[in-house]
Design a protein around this nucleic acid. Structure first.
Length: 199
DNA sequence: CGGCTTTGACCCGCGC
DNA sequence: GCGCGGGTCAAAGCCG
């Protein structure tokens, strides 16, 4: 089962706001690097995050408490999808493990992170990258478990969390963390430049 | 057979 | 100090 691949076989039902396309928003947010991987230059697998809620995280948080806001009040309030529920713990952890079950280095991570909300029948949206699931967890205030994915590309530590809204199981919250050091749909070819150097 | 998912356990930060 | 909640690991099993 490969979610990301499976996603390509399904049709997403995005709710497209007529005015503010996430794409446009994305292109204006040059600073936010994590987003670039959401917009593959090749549209062979048309992943377009045309969702009703699309949010960025300030890559340079003022207080250290990153806010994950969304344009959808459902998410930011009802679902409490704040920085805390978006997994603030992950910022403190590095995946480098030296020994079995022992974290070697734990430090605040400054990985770019953003989340968005889509209406989809599948959990894992096909964004052109290959993801491997490494965990699933039932979280509080949510009827649906949260899934944890990691990019399978070599040395790419981008992670994402996927969870469904408890009140509307068709709505999927995807939170990306980190940025890819390679191109989408290009796991085998190593052209790693355009998404890497400007952050 | 290799890669992926599943799932229970473990670890850590935070709130009380 | 303790318990809770969230994130990650890793063994086992599954599947192409």
């Amino acid at each position: 089962m490969e979610g990301s691949r499976e996603g390509a076989r399904h049709r997403y039902v995005f709710e497209v706001p007529p005015l503010s396309s996430p794409i446009e928003f994305a292109q204006q947010e040059e600073n936010f690097h994590g987003l670039s991987f959401m917009i593959p230059s090749q549209t062979s697998t048309p992943f377009i995050p045309l969702n009703s809620a699309f949010s960025f995280e300030n890559p340079n948080p003022v207080s250290g408490n990153e806010e994950v806001g969304t344009s959808d009040p459902k998410v930011s309030h009802d679902q409490n999808f704040s920085a805390r529920d978006a997994g603030v713990n992950s910022w403190w952890k590095s995946s480098s493990m030296s020994d079995k079950g022992k974290m070697k280095v734990r430090r605040k991570m400054r990985e770019p992170r953003f989340c968005f909300q889509t209406r989809s029948d599948v959990d894992v949206l096909d964004d052109g990258y290959k993801w491997r699931k490494y965990g699933q967890k039932v979280v509080k205030n949510s009827l649906h478990p949260r899934s944890y994915y990691r990019c399978t590309h070599n040395n790419c530590r981008v992670k994402k969390r996927v969870e469904r809204l408890s009140e509307d199981c068709r709505m999927v919250i995807t939170t990306y963390e980190g940025r890819h050091n390679h191109s989408p749909c290009d796991d085998t070819n190593s052209s790693e430049h355009e998404y890497y150097n400007s952050y």
